[in-house]
């Protein structure tokens, strides 16, 4: 039996781990919201600043989960944690910026272009954590809890021991981020079912 053992949600105003708000956006700060969250983590990972917002979103949420569970990465072999992410906006936020780079500024930006694929966030998480496991990024018109349930189960049945899953929507200032961890045989989590996926992602109205 598998369980959701941790989740992190980030909205435009707050960041919560396992349902408890741990950071609220400081409107007075000169830093962007994601920079505030990065500083809260007190990490030394300058690559964060090169990432687009979609990759930053996945990075921040997964780091908050790791902070709550420091043994997470070390308790699995390097190919046992699968990455299962989805959204409804693909990489549109960065796509729009890249299009502006060649249409308005007349200079297509290679550093933006490499982020014009939604699965780049999976690459960033793999690099950060040395994850060599399975990858899947899918796009849906709206939040699709059934997909996480079905494909999460598939991944656990085909060799992965844990699944780091995420619903990440970033577009024109919208921040709708949820990352959750699915593990097997851990009694201290929520049973991995549709109801609890909806609860973790916090989008009951869409599902």
């Amino acid at each position: 039996m598998s369980f959701i053992t941790a989740c992190c949600q980030i909205s435009e105003e707050a960041c919560a781990v396992n349902g408890n708000v741990i950071v609220r956006k400081d409107e007075q700060s000169a830093d962007s919201w994601f920079k505030q969250l990065y500083k809260e983590l007190a990490l030394d990972y300058p690559k964060f600043y090169k990432m687009d917002m979609l990759a930053q979103a996945g990075f921040l949420a997964s780091e908050f989960i790791k902070k709550a569970f420091p043994e997470l990465v070390s308790s699995y072999a390097d190919d046992e944690i699968a990455l299962l992410f989805a959204n409804s906006e693909s990489s549109s936020d960065t796509d729009i910026r890249f299009k502006e780079s060649f249409q308005k500024r007349k200079s297509p930006s290679p550093s933006l272009f490499v982020y014009t694929l939604p699965n780049i966030v999976l690459g960033e998480l793999a690099i950060r954590n040395k994850f060599y496991g399975e990858n899947m990024f899918a796009v849906f018109p709206k939040f699709a809890p059934e997909f996480f349930l079905q494909y999460g189960s598939v991944m656990l049945a085909t060799g992965s021991k844990a699944v780091l899953a995420g619903w990440l929507n970033i577009l024109k200032g919208k921040v709708e981020v949820s990352v959750f961890l699915i593990e097997e045989n851990k009694a201290d989590g929520l049973p991995f079912n549709k109801e609890n996926i909806i609860k973790c992602v916090g989008l009951a109205d869409q599902a």
């Binding site: 040395k130 060599y132 496991g133 399975e134 990858n135």
Partner: peptide
């Protein structure tokens, strides 16, 4: 199956690690 290189977002791994795996 699939596997990640855990190496670079736009450059292939020099050792072909993910493809190998």
């Amino acid at each position: 199956t699939s596997a990640n290189d855990a190496n670079h977002i736009s450059g292939p791994s020099r050792t072909g690690e993910g493809l190998y795996r």
